[in-house]
Design a protein around this nucleic acid. Structure first.
Lengths: 335, 335
DNA sequence: TATTGTTTTGAAAGCGCTTTCAAAATACCT
DNA sequence: AGGTATTTTGAAAGCGCTTTCAAAACAATA
């Protein structure tokens, strides 16, 4: 194997007895090259183990052949699924992903956006995050952009979102159907749109069933386990009776389940729980957690499909991604 | 805000009445520039909102000012902690991270490595993974390399690892100390070094306490929840009695805990469990899981510290990262 | 003041590729 | 066969920066 750094397009040209232009043409494939030279070039490339210099390419062509992906806190399983979907669809497109992480901090996110832009990403996928929408709207003017998990009216066509409202509705409805009447909702952070929508879905299901929405049964959580624990404590203090809990994500469901365990309240015998997200661990909670599954992989696939379309200047499709319920063992029928 | 793409170093030079060379000098800071021009240039840069073209820079300088990070399946909390550590330390170094994901597949990993190399990363951090060690040894010859989570004798100075042996030892010892004698070990994938070492630690603790190593109490798992479930089933079939389980990671502990629940065996009353990794969810298992904590963030910090040193051609330090036990409620004293 | 030494600066070459443009080669007509 | 239309090719001009090198400016010395 020869030095990867040193072999240039000129070397290939020499070896194949053609000009650099011709080599470039077989590399990019957007101009005809006579068969014999084509193979000679390919042969030379393989023999010398040539890899094009990405900087020279970027500089000359103005394209980076990368898609910037702005993520938040990569560790969340749901984001991971989205990323997986994105990667799947990017394969073989010629584009490769470049990541930058916002870590849910506006400062870091701004920084990450700059990094991506500086790297001349040909397209941008922004997953969630807390960037002011003005920033995103501005960004969308400069570069093809797909926003995942947020809905921004001004650039609605660029946004891809799960149906959180429907998910909240579904979860609550399931509980009602199982005979529950006093249903707690541990919400997400209510400054996040998705959290609000899940809450709205919850309310709708209640109303539709002729049940009153009782503020005393609603507690705002923080999308993490600890806030699930706290929510139960708050609920106990309030003293309002309840037989089921809808937590706006699985992590809070976990916390709630633990808090219940601590108080000697059995799940699902005494209290039922339904979560949201269907993260991998949830299937192994004790008892396995009934939850709402989001088509995260599909969402990711759609995101990269769309960004590719956008780059090509073609039309994009705005699909909706319906949530569905995954029944396991944390919900019982109330008699 | 002016177009980011269009402003070049020449524009700055014109505006500040200097030559491009001078602008370049104040940008890089590695040559004196008289105060007045310095400020004029800085001023021009701000006014025109200039951002250097990263391709031109890379092409001219041969440096990318990036550190390639080859990860596996980003979603695992432990990897996330390592990454966090890496990022922390990279801040302000002038280098920014570029990620590529191996998804625990050799094929994908090879690909990812190529991407990173093609992008001319000035240094590489490889986290775990299943690349043949020859590949890594070769790579180390071309570019500064730090391998995290694997020990490769030939390039030992470049490797950073947690002390898995000690962790396995610690976990088992704790169980013994609490009076357990028949201790199960659900191991990790035994083709992974860390899994083997945890197992060895387990054996050592047993021997030290004068207990026999019973093969019937050892089950190979797959580092995921499902294999924890299966392990319990296998154990039940084998019919060997046990009072405690050491699972080589928390996910398998979860699976085991669920399987036990299914069989009506209580934790920790009937059987104690200790995990490994201290992933965030584990604190919220029912009961909260006693486990082994690894200094993942510190590991990550050390990794980026070392890669930076390597790039500068300076000496690196090879620290060891001791595991420690986190006692929660899944282990009981056996009377 | 003349001379030498030291900074500070700009001109210009080049990093490795893409892409335009015109020349060369080939194909297709009549 | 001669001419035209078409395809294939190479020369050469950049892309925007860094970096060498020598000239210009300034300081220091005799």
């Amino acid at each position: 194997m020869l030095d990867r750094q040193k072999v240039t397009i000129q070397d290939i040209a020499d070896k194949a007895n053609v000009s650099p232009s011709t080599v470039s043409r077989v590399l990019s494939g957007n101009a005809r090259v006579v068969e014999s030279k084509q193979t000679a070039v390919l042969e030379a490339i393989r023999e010398l183990n040539y890899r094009p210099n990405i900087f020279a390419r970027g500089l000359a062509s103005g394209q980076s052949m990368t898609i910037g992906v702005l993520t938040q806190n990569i560790s969340s399983p749901i984001y991971d699924a989205i990323m997986w979907g994105i990667l799947q669809n990017l394969k073989g497109s010629g584009y490769s992903p470049v990541f930058a992480d916002g870590y849910w901090s506006q400062e870091a996110e701004k920084n990450a956006l700059h990094i991506l832009l500086d790297r001349h990403a040909d397209g941008l996928i922004v997953i969630g995050g807390s960037s002011p929408k003005e920033v995103l709207i501005e960004t969308a003017k400069r570069v093809p952009l797909v926003v995942v998990g947020r809905e921004i009216p001004e650039i609605s066509e660029n946004c891809l979102k799960m149906d959180d409202f429907q998910g909240g509705y579904l979860a609550t409805q399931h509980l009602i159907e199982r005979g529950h009447r006093q249903i707690v909702n541990i919400t997400g952070i209510l400054s996040h749109d998705d959290a609000v929508e899940r809450l709205e879905g919850y309310k709708k299901a209640l109303k539709e069933a002729g049940l009153a929405v009782d503020d005393q049964l609603i507690v705002e959580g923080g999308f993490n386990e600890q806030s699930g624990v706290m929510a139960i404590n708050i609920l106990m203090e309030r003293g309002r009776a309840f037989s089921a809990i809808f937590a706006a994500n699985d992590q809070m469901a976990f916390g709630a389940r633990l808090a219940l365990y601590r108080k000697g309240i059995r799940v699902p015998d005494d209290v039922s729980i339904i979560g949201y997200d269907n993260q991998p661990t949830s299937a192994y909670m004790t008892p396995p957690l009934t939850t709402i599954d989001q088509p995260a992989v599909e969402l990711g696939e759609a995101a990269s499909f769309n960004i590719l379309q956008l780059i090509k200047g073609q039309a994009i499709e705005k699909t909706t991604f319906p949530a569905k319920i995954v029944m396991r063992e944390s919900v019982s029928r109330l008699r």
